[in-house]
Amino acid sequence: MFEQLSTVAINEIRVLVREKTFLLLLLIFFLLTLFSAYIGWSTKTTILAVYRQSVITLKQAGTANIPSNPFTGIAHLSIFRNMIIYIFLVGSLMAIVVGHRAFIRERKSGVTQLIFSKPLSRSSFILGKILGITIVLLMLIIATFLVSIISSALIPNQQLTMLEAAKLFSFYIVSFLYMFIFSMLGLIFSIILPTESLTLLVPMIFWVAVTFIIPELTTGQNPVALLNPTNIIQTTSQGPFFNFMHTVLSPFSVEQHYTTISQPLLETQKQFRSLGILEIIKQNGGSFLSLMLYFFISVFLTFYSFGRYKVTNDKIYE
């Protein structure tokens, strides 16, 4: 069984890395990772330069009490804070495409008929697909982590300590969990929906709901505020409606669970700097467990959907 499972997984990776759509998304993602480090560093440098200029101006004006530099405490890791947005905007979208492509290409071409005339069980096939997707996402995450490490090494005075590197790695592992859930969403809809356009449209609607609508309803913030990686408020005081929505919808806000864990891992605020990885997980146990729960639910639903898939009734193929 393991041999067949690994055969399906390896084939999945081989086919995917030769697809132009995936390669384009991959390129965009790597560029965003580089930009994230650059933008973070540039912002930090600009702010410090403004502070230094203000000090000179204040001294020239004869001000005696010059305030201390409020930005000296900015953590090295915080230059990667934009990655939180890139993951929940672009990373999740890319994961949907990876999951969607994993099965729609077989359905569309009709290769499923050949596959299931071979002595291969359905569970081996779908497990192989999930394994292939997992490896692709992990390779992507590890490559992104390495790009982040290299970019931080290239930026002056930005070298990470071992603990900071470990926190950055942990952030990418949490990002993998988040992206995996979306990849399964893409895979599930590519199995159950009758037309190719619907198989992509419906997970996109889910993506919009998870990324924008649910966080907006649970926090009462406008969409632009939600894109601020350092200031995503977990609770709301915007009136009874949003308080109610927060209570009802918060457990389903995967994106909020993700940002809740990611912010301390990337030390987006001063108070997070002193926290170790285990402490962060402990303090945000609810969000961490919720992400894990969604991870397993998505795997279960993928198996369930595939169990009901009928090869010969599939009219999607050309």
């Binding site: 084939n11 009709g110 050949l114």
Partner: peptide, 26 residues
């Protein structure tokens, strides 16, 4: 089995396609 409209993975070579189905067949 050879279905009426036989299709494969278009971005794989003939060898890669056949190797895949051979492995699935044990």
């Amino acid at each position: 089995y050879l279905p009426e409209n036989v299709t494969f993975y278009n971005n794989l070579t003939a060898f890669e396609n056949l190797a895949y189905f051979a492995k699935l067949s044990g």
